[in-house]
């Protein structure tokens, strides 16, 4: 009788342990899947890390304003900005665009002003960022009053952080 009771208890304990194993594994898998779903964006901290995102938008925005604004009277300032702000592929991409503009600026005495309308960081991983920027651009001849609203240009920018500063490594016009 007591032997049977012991056997019955043993069976109950085994069943309980088996249930704990099944439930434990089930819960572990479920929680693991939920956690990995939440962690999906995988290292892209654009907007999620506010301070880092603002650093990118501030520095890339200021850099674009500086290299895409020029005064026929002081082209050296724009060239100095380009040296400071641009690296890699962007150097050649910029030179192509700027050469024609520069020649015209001198000939027609132009002042070209660029402002940042809006700027969105798509990706921010470590020292690399992908940014979409809407610029407002206006060209005025010397002494001319603004008659039209600035024209919108959209640039796709790849930025790189070098020595603590965000620089522009690639420029594509959209």
């Amino acid at each position: 009788m007591s032997e049977r009771a012991a056997q019955g208890r043993r069976a109950t304990v085994l069943a309980a342990l088996a249930a704990v194993v099944v439930l434990g594994i089930g819960a572990a898998v479920w929680a693991g899947l939920e956690a990995s779903r939440l962690r999906e964006p995988g290292g892209n901290v654009a907007l999620a890390d506010e301070a880092a995102t603002r650093e990118v938008t501030d520095q890339v925005g200021a850099g674009l304003k500086a290299v895409f604004s020029y005064d026929y009277n002081n082209l050296a300032r724009t060239e100095r900005a380009a040296e400071r702000v641009l690296v890699g592929k962007a150097v050649g991409q910029y030179r192509e665009r700027f050469a024609a503009a520069r020649e015209q600026a001198v000939r027609k005495r132009l002042v070209h002003t660029t402002t940042v309308r809006s700027i969105g960081v798509k990706e921010l991983r470590g020292d690399t960022a992908r940014v979409l920027v809407f610029l407002g651009q206006q060209t005025l001849a010397e002494g001319e009053q603004a008659r039209q609203d600035p024209v919108t240009a959209v640039l796709r920018v790849v930025a790189e952080k070098n020595g603590g500063r965000w620089q522009i490594a690639e420029l594509t016009t959209l």
Partner: peptide, 10 residues
């Protein structure tokens, strides 16, 4: 082990 795994994932 199953309980520990569930705890860790949780």
């Amino acid at each position: 082990l199953a309980v520990l795994a569930a705890g860790w994932s949780g």
